[in-house]
Design a protein around this nucleic acid. Structure first.
Ligand SMILES: [Zn+2]
Ligand SMILES: [Zn+2]
Ligand SMILES: [Zn+2]
Ligand SMILES: [Zn+2]
Lengths: 163, 163
DNA sequence: AGCCGAATGTGATTTTGTAACATGACGCAG
DNA sequence: CTGCGTCATGTTACAAAATCACATTCGGCT
């Protein structure tokens, strides 16, 4: 199920990782009767290949260049679909989107966002979720969804900055 | 120091709580040589009185109605000042701002945001911060700032919805 | 008075996100 | 095959959020 924490930061065969995740997403979509249409598929692919957060208009530019529609709703609708079905996530601090690296797990992960290179990693969220649930309960607050985004420096940029 | 968790959700003497926090903020500003000018002071007061998240343009409208400038930078600059100096917080999910109920504690709290009435409470963040720090460390990621926002239902709206 | 830096006012612009409606593709009932 | 309903896409226009650039004003200081 949960693959051995392939964090975006670690050096990895990127083409492979992106292709692999796309394949899993496609299988998943088929399984659930979701229609991963050309635009949607292409957007997911863009996000996977970038392996970082992309703004809606950045996505739109790519789409337009490839012959898809060139108006905002085209990008926003595809992104909304991906987010709603767990193929991508929205990063509120950046007004941007990133592909989900663990599709099909129905998670609301913790994001680690590098302020220098914009790389985004999903970290295991369970401990954080538990702590948060406790805080909510203490206040009588019923938590439905959570957003956890940490800004900082990824290992690579950290090393670069130290130099 | 940390007062006994006066969460926004609990029934409380609102005028008193707002006035009190404003007074503390003023003392704090004086102490630190920060200039809590009329616009800045008024914006903080607005946020405190509302006791919920307010958008920048909502703030701006109030300011304009009271004779301050009526262009976006007026509101954004005041809000930026308040956020940078710990008198207010930004809520990324809402593109909005809320007064800090614990100024001077240099915290990045956990927010509990009611999706029904927009009330915002700051909950103790230490357990969450610890869990998050651990997740970051495991990935070699140096966390500098965190955003934790939980959406859900406050006690009041929860009761109302159950009815 | 004269100067300086911080704060404010103002106009214009950019960036981000939606509403509303028209068109086109697909599956299916008749 | 025809007509119909549904979903996805395209397109126009617009709204909301945020920033840029520049002029002006206000304190404190010399
Ligand atoms: Zn994910
Ligand atoms: Zn980095
Ligand atoms: Zn606070
Ligand atoms: Zn509520």
């Amino acid at each position: 199920m949960t693959q051995p924490e392939t964090l975006a930061f670690h050096a990895h065969d990127h083409a492979h990782c992106a292709g692999d995740t796309l394949a899993r997403a496609e299988a998943l979509a088929a399984e659930q009767g979701l229609r991963l249409t050309p635009v949607r598929r292409r957007v997911l692919q863009l996000l996977l290949e970038a392996h970082r957060a992309m703004g809606a208009y950045e996505v739109l530019d790519r789409l337009a260049a490839e012959g898809f529609g060139n108006q905002p709703p085209v990008a926003y609708r595809a992104l909304e679909f991906l987010v709603e079905n767990g193929f991508a996530h929205r990063l509120h601090r950046l007004n941007a989107f990133a592909a989900c690296m663990h599709p099909g797990e129905d998670h609301s992960p913790v994001f680690l966002i590098c302020r220098s290179c914009d790389a985004v990693a999903e970290a295991p969220a369970d401990p954080v979720r538990r702590a948060l649930a406790e805080a909510g309960e203490a206040a009588g607050f019923a938590i439905e969804r959570m957003t956890v985004e940490a800004m900082g420096l990824c290992p690579a940029c950290r090393a670069a900055e130290a130099a």
